[in-house]
Amino acid sequence: MLQPSLHSASKWIIRNTLISNESLTPEFKFHLITIASPLWMSTPDECPLPDPYWAFYWPGGQGLSRFILDNKQLFCGSQILDFGAGCGSASMAASVSGASRILANDIDKCGISHQKSRF
C-alpha cells in the first residue's frame, strides 16, 4: 500500500470522517469514523491509511481526558508526555488545563502531529 502525503491524507480524513463531540468530553470536536460514517463498514482496501486507530475516540482516552479536564489544578504548569496519543485528546485536555509543556507522541503519522506546548 502506498503512503499518501500528509496533505492528501489530511484532505481524505476531512472528506471521510464526521465531526463528533458525542463523548465524555463534549468540549472537544474530532473528525472521527463513527457509525454514521461511510467508513464504518469499509474494508482495509477502502481506506488508503493503514490502521486508522486515530479515527476513533477510545474509551480510555475519553476517561483520561475527562479526568484531566475535571482536575485542572493537578495539571496546571505541569509537563506532559502523551505517549500513544492517538487522536490527541489527553494532550488537548492538558493544554486547556494549563500544562506548561506537552509532547504528544504516536507511531501513526496521520494521527496527532503536534509537538508544541500549546494547540
Score class of each variant (00 low, 15 high):
S95K: 07
Q79T: 14
G63F: 10
R101H: 14
D51R: 13
K11P: 00
D51W: 07
L74I: 14
F75N: 04
L64T: 12
N21P: 01
R15F: 01
C47M: 15
T25K: 01
M41S: 15
G88D: 03
F75D: 06
Q62R: 09
S20H: 03
S23N: 07
L39K: 11
S23Y: 03
M1I: 11
A85Y: 08
N21C: 07
L2V: 12
S20Q: 04
T17H: 11
L49V: 13
L103M: 11
P44H: 08
S42T: 08
Q62T: 08
M41P: 00
E22A: 09
E27N: 04
L2H: 09
N16A: 02
R66E: 09
M92C: 10
I102S: 02
K116S: 14
D106L: 05
G61C: 05
A90W: 00
S113T: 15
C87I: 11
S42R: 05
C87H: 07
Q79H: 13
H7Y: 05
F75Q: 04
F30E: 03
L39I: 14
K29F: 06
S65M: 03
S42M: 02
D45S: 14
S89F: 02
T34R: 11
E22L: 09
K29W: 03
C76Q: 15
N105E: 05
N71P: 05
I80Y: 09
K72W: 00
A104G: 12
Q79I: 10
C87L: 13
K72A: 10
M41T: 15
A55I: 10
A99D: 04
L32W: 03
A85C: 09
L39M: 15
H31M: 05
Y57F: 14
K109C: 03
I19Y: 10
G84L: 04
H7I: 14
G77L: 11
N105I: 13
S10P: 00
W58K: 01
I19A: 12
S8E: 15
G77Y: 13
F30R: 11
Q3T: 15
Q3N: 12
F56P: 00
L2K: 15
G60A: 11
T43D: 07
S8N: 11
L32Y: 02
L24E: 13
T34F: 01
A99G: 04
G63M: 13
G111F: 00
L39A: 09
E46C: 01
L2T: 14
C110I: 01
P52F: 10
Q62N: 08
P50G: 01
P44Y: 05
